[in-house]
Structures are given as C-alpha cells and as structure tokens.
Design a binder for these strands. Structure first.
Lengths: 218, 218
DNA sequence: TCCATAATATGACCGTCAGTCATTAAAAGA
DNA sequence: TCTTTTAATGACTGACGGTCATATTATGGA
C-alpha cells in the first residue's frame, strides 16, 4: 500500500512536469508565430507527443492559452510583492510598481502581444471554474495595489478623496490600455509627430499627477 | 453611349444598395449571435444570396466586420460634430461629448460587445489600405476632440500644461478602456461591492478632474 | 425580336484545423 | 508471468472560410 502511494506521488510529479513542458513549448510557438497560426498538431510535434495526448493534459487549445497566462501572472505578482514590501512611502511604492511593470512588459513583449491580440476574445469565453481561478489571481495583485494606495493615503502621499480600491482598479485599467494600445493608434501617434515612447511617458505623468495628493485648496 | 453611362450609374447604385443590405444582415447576425458563431453560408442565406456572391462584395469575412465598424464610426462622428458646434466652453463641449458617447455605447450595446470581443484581433490584421481608411476615420474624431481641448485651454476651462492632441488621445484611450472592460473585471468589481455603474461614474469623475484647469498653485 | 457578349450569381469543392475515440502500448501490482 | 489499470496515439469527423468552373441574367446592337 505504501508503495502504491509513493508511485502515485511520482506519477503526479511526472504529470506536472509534462504539463509544464507542454506550456513551455506552447509559449515558444505561440509567442513567436501567433496563437492562431500554431496548430495543435504542430505543438504536439514540438513536445514529441501525439496530438491526442495534449488533450489528456489540457481540455482544449484555449486552456493552454490560459495556463500560459496564469504562469506569467505569478511571475509578475512576485515582482509586485517585492515592491510592496519595501520601506518607502505609498506613492513611492506605487511609482516603483509602475516602473517595474513596464519593465516586465518590455521583457515580455511577445507575451503581451499574444495577450493583447487574443486575450479579449478568450477571456470572454472562460468557463466558470477558469474564471474563478483567473479572478483569484487578479485579486492578489489588486489587493496589493489597494494596500499600497491605502498606505499612501495614510502617509499623505496619495490623494484621499477616492476609494483606494477603485483607484487600484483605475490604475490597472489604464496601464493595461497603454500596454495593449492598438498598432493603428501607434501609427496615428507617429503620424502626428508623437513617438509611442513619448506618449507613454506623458500618459504616465498625467496619471501620476492625477493620483498625487494636491496641495489643499479649500 | 449616354444610355450606357446611365446604366452604369444605376448598376453602381444597385451594387451599393446590395452592399448595404449585406452589412445590415451581418450586423443583425453578428451582434446577436457573435462574429465567430455566424458562418458565411448562414449570412448568405439571410440575404438570400449564394455564399460565393458575398465574396463579390466583400473580400472576406473580416472585411465585413470592418465595414460594420466604419458605418458606426460615421454615425458616432455625426454626434460628436453636433457637440463641437455648440456655443459653450471647451470643457462643456468635452463633457457633453463624453455624455453623448456613453449614451451611444448604451444604445449600441451589441455592437460594442462585438467590437470589444473581436476588434483587438482583427484590427491587428488590417491590410494597408484598410488600415489607412480606418485611420482617416479615427483622425476625424480625434481632430474634433483636439479642437475642443484647444478651445478649452484658450477659454481657461481645461488645463493647459498638456499637449491638447495627446490629451485627446488620452481621453479616447481611457473611454475605450471602460467601454471594453472585461466581464471578469466587472464581476470582480461587483464582488468587491462596487457596481459597474458606480465605477464608471467615479472613473469619469476622476478623469474629468484630471483634465480640468486647477486653481493656480505656484 | 434575337443574338453575342459581358456582368453577375452560384454551390460543389478544397484545404485546414480543433477536437474525438477506438485501438495500441506501457506500467503496476499480484 | 499474467491481469488490470493507466497513458498514448493518429486516423477520422465536422465545421468553416475561401475559390472557381459553370450557369444565369442583363445589356446593347443588328
């Protein structure tokens, strides 16, 4: 009986490893060739498995996309947690989190390209259980930011006339919208003589300015 | 010869009419059943044409999506132009445009659902000529807003320490991000006790606040 | 009125791909 | 070694976007 349990454990581990190997391969292919342009057949070949086998590990192609997302979210969350643990003002933490976030985006260009392109459609298809998992992950980040804003309001570095939780939502929303900026918009910007880089900088300034505590003018 | 010309004209008109009839049918089906869940076969049946015929009027399924978008953009632009023509302050115009925009979104829920779901992917696939057409349309709106902000800066109702064109971009970007808010986010908000309606109101306040001219604090 | 030609319409057909399932192979335990 | 459970497979299915050879209809002149 003990032997059986041990075997079960090992199998469990092996299964987890294989799952990760599949995600690795999926990232590699999806990032550089596009989610739609990679067939399950091709992915199976990459991991040296039969196509049918993939479906033993993932319900369908979308679930694979989702698994990639969750793994990256964990990675990013780790970064945010580091920032939140620093011993600086709330506003400083928030600023740093923004900085680290945009660095992360830069280091994971292909990932974000995939998410911006395919995310909107796929997120709207998530099943209940998946949606729940996803929300749990989002919530972790959100609460971190929430906490940071509360600190900022307490130490007087962030304006305190807004619900800090909503503020966390605003920030997430706006950051997201810059990261996922349509290529068409980028072209328009350039055509109007504003570089994307400049635009991002100005937008961040605009936002930062909007959340900082202002000198009281009563 | 004259007769030939007249015939050509009539044919041109008929072609245009038929094109519009197809777009009408496509809207009807795409809006209520989802872009992906409507096959070209089905759409052809709806307009009482053969499937192949559709391809005489539209290059492919994406082009149909695009045609729907352009038609709606014109509709919205008309509304914005009305607002811009009013005889009120720049800030008032901007506020009104925001109001009318969100009303428009509300009246076209199904349209926006389609765009938010399928737009991101399809916009990234636009061919050069289509991209150009699209940008022309966007530009029209953008310049309208740009003008309004400049007026606002001139009449002292809008803060004047930002490039007004960039400000127009910011506003478009942020409005868009609220309209296309992921359903997952909506659920999270509700779970945290914030209704979507409340959230939108607060966000608009937050933004409005960020663009208004502040009492000079030098 | 009739015919030749051009314009328009059609649906069977093709290639592709996600997902399934009957079958085979491997591993575990007795 | 033999039986049973678990894992792996790839041929197959159904659906769909897009094409093209063929058919239908309209046009303008004789």
């Amino acid at each position: 009986m003990v032997k059986i349990m041990a075997t079960t454990d090992r199998k469990e581990r092996e299964k987890e490893q294989r799952k990760n190997a599949i995600i690795d391969a999926a990232e590699k292919l999806f990032f550089f060739r596009g989610f739609d342009n990679v067939s399950m057949e091709e992915l199976a070949k990459e991991v040296e498995l039969g196509k049918g086998t993939l479906y033993l590990y993932f319900k369908n192609k979308d679930a694979l996309f989702f698994a990639i997302i969750l793994r990256k979210m964990d990675e990013l969350h780790e970064i945010f947690r580091e920032c939140a643990d620093l011993k600086v003002s709330g506003r400083e933490k928030s600023k740093l989190m923004g900085k680290r976030y945009f660095e992360f985006v830069h280091e994971n260009k292909e990932y974000y390209q995939m998410v911006c392109t395919n995310g909107p459609k796929l997120f709207r298809k998530l099943e209940n259980e998946e949606l729940h998992t996803f929300m749990e992950h989002m919530k972790e980040d959100l609460l971190l930011h929430h906490g940071v804003f509360r600190e900022g309001m307490a130490d007087g570095t962030v304006r305190n006339d807004i619900n800090p939780l909503e503020l966390a939502f605003f920030m997430a929303l706006m950051s997201n919208s810059i990261v996922c900026l349509d290529p068409g918009w980028k072209i328009m910007l350039e055509a109007e003589g504003i570089s994307y880089h400049q635009f991002v900088k100005d937008f961040l300034l605009f936002i930062g300015n909007a959340i900082e505590k202002r000198p009281d003018v009563d």
